[in-house]
Amino acid sequence: MSTTTIPVRELTAADVTAAPVLPDVLPARRERGAVMMFIYRHPTIAAGGFLVALIIAMAIFAPWLGTVDPTALAPAKRTRPPSELYWFGTDMLGRDVYSRVLYGSRVSLIVGFSVAFFASAVGMAIGLISGFVRILDAIVMRIMDGLMSIPSILLAIALMALTRGSVGNVILAITVAEVPRVSRLVRGVVLSLREQPYVEAAVASGTRMPKIIWKHIVPNTLAPMMVQATFICASAMITEAILSFIGAGTPPTIPSWGNIMAEGRALWQVKPYIVFFPAIFLSVTVLAVNLLGDGLRDALDPRMAKRI
């Protein structure tokens, strides 16, 4: 069935977002001990980056990690506990939970990274515009208010009803809900920054707006944005699980951590492993993304950098 196999190519968004790890690691090759130094200085980046890279690798190489077809049913072998044959047991339809969890990482990563990327980009643009252009501010913020006041869950169910459950719809629904959040945050920072003496000075000295934004505002919004983006990425993965719980998430033909847990949740008192394994993977991934974000924040912050 064409809908069940997720092409590896779709992981581009993941690669893009994971990229910032690389520049930090590369210079380390030049000197001996530099790697150790880097880990010593940025233990959170190292730990988070390592875990994220590991999970990305797991997602890409899922077919070669001892998995079987994650969608193959075997109702006669349903709800088997973990064993040598079924490492993580089987679910209510006799599908192999280990295979589903490994393949499921693809959906969670795609959803997390895509939402973080799109929401940050769009939200940043809107936030900057509304923070600087007073005339647009009121209008843009009212539209954002309107969008934001519709709970993302309602939006996701409506979208599912409109077409049907799909990964694209999940990404769209979560992104729409996150954009106003980012733009509000950016706008808040801008509002506070533009009153700063150095920005006022720049404006007074006739520096052009784009330059002010690029030189003074954007760098200062990056740190909070980075924290926000990691939070969005992590929260998007969780929201994907919640949408599956409500029945408006990833379609059941595509295994995702969210729908493995949602399908197994009724049995969690008697067959806890169906929920346990995807929950552990989801938690570790979210934790890793957050560690990475925290580390990046500390490292990127110019004032922090000066101190080091």
């Binding site: 949740r265 979210v286 560690l291």
Partner: peptide, 22 residues
């Protein structure tokens, strides 16, 4: 503190709910 805080949002609310209820 941060690890404890991060735990809070790395587990979906229904899993936390079930564990608390249990």
């Amino acid at each position: 503190i941060m690890v404890v805080a991060v735990m809070g949002f790395s587990v979906p609310v229904f899993v936390i709910g079930y564990v608390l209820a249990y």
